[in-house]
Simulated assay, not measured.
Amino acid sequence: MKYSFFIPVRSGSERVINKNTRDFAGVRGGLLGFKLNQILNLSDEFEIVVSTNDEECYKISNSYKGKFQNFKIIERSNILSQSDTPLKELILHAGEVCSGNSILWTHVTSPFCGPKDYIKAIQLYEEGLKENYDSLVSGRDYKEFLLDKKSGEILNNNSKLSWPRTQDLSDWFEINNAIFLTSRKNYKNGNRIGSKPVLHTQNKIVSHDIDYIDDFKIAEAIYDRFYK
């Protein structure tokens, strides 16, 4: 197996209650159902791994058995599902439960990162491997004013101007949490980004990440306007 898709979903989301399974623009199964429907058309050569401690997430995932050729639902321990669980522990978990040579970690809270985006990322990752890159992370280019809350200093001012134009700001890259792609070996060492990652730029809609209730509402509006 060359690639595993790792999809972590847990119970107890604090900022958006039942974020992964609550009604999302009328889509059955909420964000989890939306993501699983998205990747149904991916090649059978991919392994799909859902890791959860949530009974409803397990039930929704279980309804997709038979629709994927290579599909695993991992009953994650509650110890690995707390809000304060060190991320490294979950990364190590992904390395243990996935079978692919490389693992693509994605989130249901990135609903507009779909099959074409995943395939594009894999292509860029494979091209990068030929040039000694060892991983890929998705995000968007960031050229907005970023101030230090204590000093008021513009942190990304790369010019000698006290108040530069946005085009004069330093080139920054904001991780959007949609794709983390690297070898299973790196995951088993506790890393989902290697030492030399390809920085894969995505647009604002694809980069939309649901973390707060406003993000959820905006995502529903985007879905109704552009995807429904």
Score class of each variant (00 low, 15 high):
Glu55Ser: 14
Glu55Gly: 02
Cys57Ser: 15
Cys57Gly: 09
Cys57Met: 05
Lys59Trp: 01
Tyr64Phe: 15
Lys65Met: 09
Gly66Lys: 14
Lys67Asn: 12
Gln69His: 10
Asn70Lys: 15
Phe71Arg: 15
Ile74Tyr: 10
Glu75Gly: 01
Arg76Gln: 14
Arg76Cys: 07
Asn78Met: 05
Ile79Gly: 00
Ile79Cys: 00
Ser81Lys: 04
Ser81Ile: 00
Gln82His: 04
Pro86Arg: 04
Ile91Ala: 00
Leu92Val: 03
Leu92Lys: 00
His93Trp: 01
Ala94Gln: 02
Val97Met: 05
Cys98Gly: 07
Gly100Ser: 10
Leu104Ile: 15
Trp105Ile: 03
Thr106Trp: 05
Thr109Tyr: 04
Ser110Gly: 11
Pro111His: 12
Phe112Met: 10
Cys113Phe: 15
Gly114Leu: 13
Pro115Asp: 09
Pro115Glu: 10
Pro115Gly: 07
Lys116Trp: 03
Lys120Ser: 15
Lys120Asn: 14
Ala121Tyr: 10
Ile122Gln: 11
Gln123Thr: 13
Leu124Gln: 13
Tyr125His: 10
Glu126Tyr: 01
Glu127Ala: 12
Glu127Pro: 03
Gly128Arg: 09
Leu129Arg: 13
Lys130Met: 07
Lys130Tyr: 01
Asn132Arg: 11
Tyr133Lys: 13
Tyr133His: 14
Asp134Ile: 13
Asp134Trp: 08
Asp134His: 09
Ser135Met: 08
Leu136Glu: 09
Leu136Thr: 09
Tyr142Lys: 04
Lys143Met: 08
Lys143Tyr: 04
Phe145Ile: 07
Leu146Asn: 03
Leu147His: 08
Leu147Glu: 01
Leu147Val: 00
Asp148His: 07
Ser151Phe: 07
Glu153Thr: 08
Ile154Asn: 08
Ile154Gly: 02
Leu155Pro: 06
Leu155Cys: 01
Asn157Ser: 02
Asn157Glu: 07
Asn157Phe: 05
Ser162Asn: 12
Pro164Ile: 09
Pro164Glu: 03
Arg165Asp: 13
Thr166Cys: 06
Thr166Arg: 11
Asp168Arg: 06
Leu169Gln: 08
Ser170Phe: 02
Ser170Val: 01
Asp171Phe: 10
Trp172Asp: 07
Trp172Ala: 06
